[in-house]
Amino acid sequence: MTPNHKLDPNHWITLYSDYLFNYAISRVNDREIAQDLVSETFLSGLKSMVNFKGKASERTWLTSILKRKIIDHYRKTNSNKGKAEVRMGYSYPTESEGDWLEERVADPFGKTAEDVMENVELGDAIYNCLSKLPEKQARIFELKTITGYDTETICNELNITSSNLWVQIHRARTALASCLEKNWFKA
């Protein structure tokens, strides 16, 4: 395969920060840690740009760095866990004796690993579709739909009118619906 992908760090934040953040948070389940991991990913990417061979897309390459960061994060937390082990006193006879059986019963309404995996994959699929939209349109959609900002806040933040916001939202929703239809529902 001939290397044909190039790196342009000037656009990394705009193009990939939300995708990478969603990727990280769905795996570490902590907003602050996810932000740190994304920040570290960009910095590592910057430092190892010379190693980029151009065989994968910019996003794939950054995601592979993030994956390694996530593994490192879990390695670190696991080694810390050994030092601060929480001991549960199930063997002590107390007033709550016998409760442990109930506590350990599986929650039938809890999410299974497959459900969680599907959520993560669906999130990735939506971000794949979002990345095909014009930059501003994708950002407006994210702020409105995912972050849940109200119309006025977005209009002030991005300096647009409310009617312009709804036009962009409409275009984004139409494009996303057909993209997901092709790549998620029919796949």
Binding site: I25, N119, I126, L180
Partner: peptide, 9 residues
Amino acid sequence: TIQDAKMNC
């Protein structure tokens, strides 16, 4: 679908 994905940005 978006609600099911529990997305974050």
